[in-house]
Structure formats: structure tokens, C-alpha cells
């Protein structure tokens, strides 16, 4: 339940991965993660291949390794949960370092650990190499309804502004000595949440008026469509291709 993620992950670089069309990267990310998700957990080597493939892409994208590792911390609460699985899991039990754990539970923990880590790395790669407006354009290219991506674009545009309002309210409260420690001291926070909603809504109405003033009739004009080349699709297909091939091989090996 990590909060406070106001900043996007984009890392400014000029790598081949950055240059790929966003729709291509989105499709590749989903393809890769899906392939990982269906890979049988017993094929540990398969996950090693997937991880190696991702490592190559991270390198190509010139993302700092420390940055990727730090962002992986997002999944820590779930990893903690994964470590509990062998203890609460059922099924045949084995002794590990003198503690009795569920064997199927161990596999379950490994499954979550491997897939969550690989999946999060893919997400970090996507977000780290693609600016948010591009991601939204890519979504529109992949037939996500334009209304949905337009709403998301407005959210991104006004997020910093509203978060800034929030920070100023916080500062004002702190400046007057407000330091809540218990739930029943939360009234000022909740009240400012209400005030923030009103401000946001009124902002929405003013923005709407500004849009009308420039001829808006209810449909966002389609701007700047970038068509991806066949070459881009082919290049982007390599990593998910490797993952899919690995998954299929793993299936066959375990048959």
C-alpha cells in the first residue's frame, strides 16, 4: 500500500528502447509479462532466461541498475507475503533449516517471487523509457477508447498542481503546529481533502470553459499520430518472443 508516488519513472535518455514507438513497447511489455505468467514454475531455468533477456533490455535502455532495483521495492509487501506462504501453506511438508514448511507452499512462494519481480521489471522498463503522454498515445493507438486516454492525460496534467495544493495545505497545518498521531486527530486532514475536491471540481469547470472558448464540442481532436514501422514491431517482438519460446519449451520439457 505504498503511497506518495507523485513522480513518474521516466529516465531521460536517448537509447534505442526510448526511441521505439510507445504502442510497440506497450504491446511488447504485455506480451512478455503474459509469457512469464504462464511459464510453469518448476522450470527455474526458464525464469533465468527471461531475467537475462530483461537484463539485456535494461542495458540497451541505459537505465541505471540501482534505479531499477530501488523501484522494485514497490512489490516488497507482496514479497513479504510470499515468504509467509510456505508456513501457512498446506500439502506435503519438508524441513528447511529445521523448520517444517509446506513444499507446495515453497513452490507457490517461488512462483510469486519470480513472476512479480520479472513483471515489475518490465513495468519499470516501460515507464522508465516512455514519457507519460507517449504511453497514453500508445494506448490510443492500441484501440483503448480515446475518451479514456484523454481523461488520463488530464489527470496527469493536473496531478502535480493538485498535489501541490495538497502540500501547501499540509505545510499550512504543520506551520500552525498540527502533528497528528492518532486517527481521531484526522479531522483537519479530511476537511482539507473535502476542500481539495471542491477546488479540483471548480478547476475542472474553468478548464471546460477554456476548452469551449477554443471551439471544443465534446471530442478531443486527434493529434500527432505516430505510426509504428514494421521494423519497430519486429525489434520489439524479440524480448516477448524469447519469453514465449522459453515458456513453450518449459511446457514441453515438463510434459
Amino acid at each position: 500500500m505504498g503511497a506518495g508516488h507523485a513522480h513518474a519513472l521516466y529516465v531521460h535518455e536517448h537509447s534505442p528502447v526510448h526511441r521505439l514507438a510507445p504502442q510497440v513497447k506497450l504491446a511488447a511489455a504485455f506480451g512478455f509479462v503474459l509469457a512469464v505468467a504462464v511459464t510453469p514454475r518448476e522450470a527455474m531455468w526458464a525464469f533465468a532466461i527471461d531475467a537475462a533477456a530483461l537484463a539485456v533490455v535494461v542495458r540497451l535502455a541505459r537505465l541505471p541498475v540501482a534505479f531499477v532495483l530501488a523501484r522494485l521495492a514497490v512489490i516488497l509487501p507482496f514479497i513479504t507475503f510470499a515468504f509467509l506462504i510456505p508456513f501457512v501453506g498446506s500439502g506435503e511438508r519438508v524441513d528447511v533449516l529445521g523448520v517444517s514448511v509446506s513444499q507446495a507452499g515453497l513452490w507457490g512462494a517461488w512462483n510469486v517471487l519470480a513472476k512479480a519481480t520479472l513483471g515489475a521489471t518490465v513495468s519499470i522498463l516501460l515507464a522508465g523509457t516512455t514519457e507519460i503522454p507517449s504511453i497514453l498515445r500508445g494506448m490510443a493507438q492500441l484501440r483503448v477508447p480515446e475518451t479514456f486516454t484523454a481523461i488520463a492525460a488530464f489527470m496527469i496534467r493536473y496531478l502535480e498542481l493538485i498535489a501541490g495544493d495538497l502540500r501547501r495545505m499540509r505545510t499550512a497545518m504543520t506551520a500552525r503546529g498540527y502533528d497528528p498521531r492518532w486517527l481521531w486527530q484526522a479531522r483537519p486532514i479530511a476537511t482539507s481533502a473535502g476542500a481539495l475536491f471542491i477546488r479540483s471540481y471548480e478547476r475542472g469547470e474553468r478548464v471546460h470553459a477554456a476548452m469551449l472558448s477554443r471551439g471544443y464540442t465534446g471530442t478531443m481532436p486527434a493529434l500527432d499520430r505516430r505510426v509504428a514501422t514494421k521494423r519497430e514491431w519486429l525489434i520489439a517482438a524479440i524480448a516477448p518472443g524469447v519469453a514465449t519460446g522459453t515458456a513453450i519449451t518449459a511446457f514441453l520439457a515438463l510434459m
Binding site: 513518474a8 519513472l9 506497450l26 509479462v33 513483471g119 518490465v122 513495468s123 516501460l126 515507464a127 496527469i156
Partner: peptide, 9 residues
């Protein structure tokens, strides 16, 4: 998609 918070699948 943009903050890598929560898996894609």
C-alpha cells in the same frame, strides 16, 4: 503503466 505500481497482467 507509468508508475510501475501493480502488475500489467
Amino acid at each position: 503503466l507509468a508508475f510501475a505500481d501493480g502488475g500489467l497482467t
